[in-house]
């Protein structure tokens, strides 16, 4: 080891780190651990609950659809020209639901078509109003 090596060796800066370093770090580590346990206690039941609600919704939806179509209520209350399509209750179960969905599709298409007509009418009228400046 030459002189430079010795000089470098002796040049190390030292100081006393804070005494509670280990305790504080251990606290952070165990805190993290506790946090993850809390996470398990919190997130797992929450996820299970959400799953249960979803299952309920999906199992109850066909029944409520059947009930509403039997009672004549539900989606067929808005009046549009396409309403005549097939919103009257007929049959049971999936057939009713399919009919209802078809009715909704029909209504949406009709509304789109009405909107397009209105837009083109607006365009026409704005063109009529335009007056050449020169």
């Amino acid at each position: 080891m030459d002189k430079l090596d010795k000089s470098i060796k002796n040049a190390k800066q030292t100081y006393e780190p804070r005494e509670d370093f280990v305790a504080v770090t251990m606290q952070r580590i165990t805190g993290t651990k506790r946090k993850s346990r809390l996470g398990l206690k919190f997130w797992v039941p929450m996820l299970a609950g959400s799953l249960a609600v979803l299952i309920l919704v999906f199992t109850a939806l066909p029944n409520s659809g059947r009930n509403s179509s039997k009672s004549g209520g539900g989606v067929s209350q808005t009046s549009t020209p396409s309403q005549t399509a097939s919103t009257t209750p007929s049959g049971t179960g999936n057939t009713d639901l399919t009919n209802d969905l078809n009715a909704i599709d029909g209504q949406m298409n009709q509304e789109k078509s009405d909107q397009n007509n209105a837009n083109s009418a607006l365009n026409d009228s704005s063109q009529e109003i335009t007056v050449p400046t020169d």
Partner: peptide
């Protein structure tokens, strides 16, 4: 911890930073 903190201190020349980094490293 002591050796690591001093090693970091000689790298970053900041006591607080050296201890913070050492703590993060242990975690």
């Amino acid at each position: 911890h002591r050796g690591l903190i001093l090693h970091l201190f000689n790298l970053v020349h900041d006591e607080a930073l050296a201890e913070d980094v050492a703590q993060d490293a242990f975690i």
